[in-house]
Design a protein around this nucleic acid. Structure first.
Lengths: 336, 336
DNA sequence: GTCCCCTGCTCAATCGATGTAGCGACACTG
DNA sequence: CAGTGTCGCTACATCGATTGAGCAGGGGAC
């Protein structure tokens, strides 16, 4: 007990433990990393070292450890938002699934800013991430290039790219089904068949294009043509959506396809402000438990986050050839 | 151009760059870290090194860099959930504010599991985090002890502890105000003054206790006594809340205080399932934009995430004495 | 007694970046 | 031409953990 030196601000290293336990740093390292049996350390010494480490409140210096090891087991994810049920669920489940596989997840939020996406990806390289999941990126191919240059494997999630494997929802089929339901429920409620309105998303964005294609296809099935004026596609922003709706003037008895909960936020705010109250029927691509109890909501298309992430981890374990895009079916949640 | 060796899976180091540029690793390091002017490197050499680094797609090995430096500038946060507007906003704003201050945020989600909280905190120590923000932890004092042992500064957010500085909402005043509004709006709507119901939270949790105190106080002000049976406090779970509500049997014309959006999720699900429809008035401690358009919602008490995080960063910059608890006022969002 | 093997450890090189100390070359002073 | 200073760069120790190589000592075979 005489040699224990507790320099306050200084964290103990394996050299400190070795000195205190009267042994070598190698022995300490192998005991604490669990490889001591292969290295022929006696159970007695292992016991002593463990006790000293416990007493001194030792914790591994990951920086030093990772510098020496060949594999970091770090897996990075960049994601545009946290405060939204879809991306929140992705982040939360990704962490849990990564941990369950013995990997160290590191997530960072890029707020749909292309520069921040790029910087965050660079930072993941610096962390020595072995793999990077690029979620909802505005320019996935630029990041793919960065990853290719440093030899880091990358996978797109939610929004596909052309240079690395992608896992996305089956946006076309989901939108088609959702559109059919909104059309029929609007018909039931108001007795007329009119083309729906399409609200939210970005014109150039892959998901928005696919969903519009499904939306159009469901209209075509029943011989309806959608006028050009029936769309508001002004980006992922609740405020812009609400402002645009005020100009559009949707008539009583209409049906509305809302493309994301972000647009839906603007939509329900606008809808609530109408006086006299406006009777509509709407459906939304994406799930939210509070939006689900709105009386005019006829259904929400929930993206299957668990299944998508499973496919992502399959791609991680066995790298595919080329840059395939896998589409995962959505689950429709009918309301009422 | 003859010496460029592009070993595919291998990332270039400063030694590779030095060899290619015909200079030393020290020069490369100082140029890339921006300290080259102090080290008397000529602008010409700096230019050449930068070009080579660019060409080779060099990226810093943070592990090696941090191992050598005395400061990591890493700031950790553990948080119970992502997919909820309150915690989602905390995570998102924390990252932005940390970056704006030149720090590297690392967040991890602990799902209110005490063991995972502890493990995650250990991992933050291993990352050499200089500071740890402990958000909504079930046992903050245990983590405080861990941090004290390794000399890492720690701050509680949302839920206070006794061993490190804490930043929390003014739950008492917020709950009191919210209760007053629900009481008066229920009176307006149904003409009777009856004690409210209190739904959600954990009995032993500090926030729940404070909010119940505010709730009780607002009742006492107008001479109302709250019966013991008017509470459902069974943890942060939408399912348990919905199940308990089914047993409780809240009568038509009642007012309800919902303690968190997680409980609210169960509450609105239950409410919607009632047939014939149940007319109530409720308010919620926490903000959610979709819940805000519910016709029976009279107001939501929004926690001031920006202000709370500002206080957290103040504590980080100048460590306070002892373990003070700062209370940040909430912002009431009246509805209708 | 010699050879060999096994046990239980330690030594020292290594990962990549950083920063102090110092070296060679040249200019300028007196 | 010795002495001093500055410029522009390089050498090397260092951070903490990992791991292949190797060493001392004891036991058994012949």
């Amino acid at each position: 007990m005489a040699g224990d030196e507790d320099i306050p601000g200084k964290r103990p290293t394996i050299y400190d433990l070795a000195r205190i336990a009267g042994t070598s740093a190698s022995a300490v390292s192998s005991v604490l990393s669990g490889t001591w049996k292969k290295r022929r350390i006696s159970a007695q010494l292992a016991e002593r070292i463990s006790r000293v480490a416990e007493e001194q409140g030792y914790s591994l210096n990951l920086q030093a450890s990772l510098l020496r090891r060949e594999r970091s087991r770090i897996i990075g994810m960049i994601i545009p938002k946290y405060d939204n049920r879809y991306f929140g669920a992705i982040a939360e489940q990704f962490e849990a699934m990564a941990r369950a596989r013995g990997l160290f997840p590191v997530i960072t939020c890029t707020r749909r800013e292309p520069e921040l996406e790029y910087e965050a990806a660079r930072q993941m390289m610096s962390y020595q991430a072995e793999c990077l999941i690029v979620t909802g990126a505005t320019d996935p191919d630029r990041i793919a290039e960065l990853c290719a240059a440093t030899g880091v494997r990358a996978i797109n999630l939610d929004l596909p790219g052309t240079r690395m494997p992608s896992v996305v929802s089956d946006n076309f089929a989901g939108a088609q089904e959702l559109t059919r339901v909104i059309l029929s429920r609007t018909h039931e409620a108001f007795g007329r068949r009119a083309p729906l309105y399409f609200i939210g998303g970005r014109p150039q964005d892959h998901n928005t294009r696919e969903r519009r294609r499904g939306f159009m296809s469901a209209h075509a099935e029943i011989g309806l043509r959608v006028p050009d004026g029936n769309s508001i596609v002004r980006g992922y922003s609740a405020d812009k959506t609400a402002a645009a709706l005020a100009e559009l003037g949707i008539p009583h008895g209409s049906g509305v396809f809302v493309n994301s909960t972000i647009a839906l936020e603007g939509f329900v705010r606008w809808l609530r402000a109408q006086s006299p109250p406006l009777e509509l029927r709407f459906g939304c691509f994406d799930w939210d438990p509070f939006a689900a109890v709105h009386p005019q909501n006829v259904g929400m298309m929930q993206q299957d986050v668990g299944a998508m992430l499973s496919r992502v981890f399959e791609f991680i374990q066995s790298a595919p050839n080329g840059a395939p895009t896998v589409e995962v079916p959505c689950r429709f949640r009918a309301l009422d």
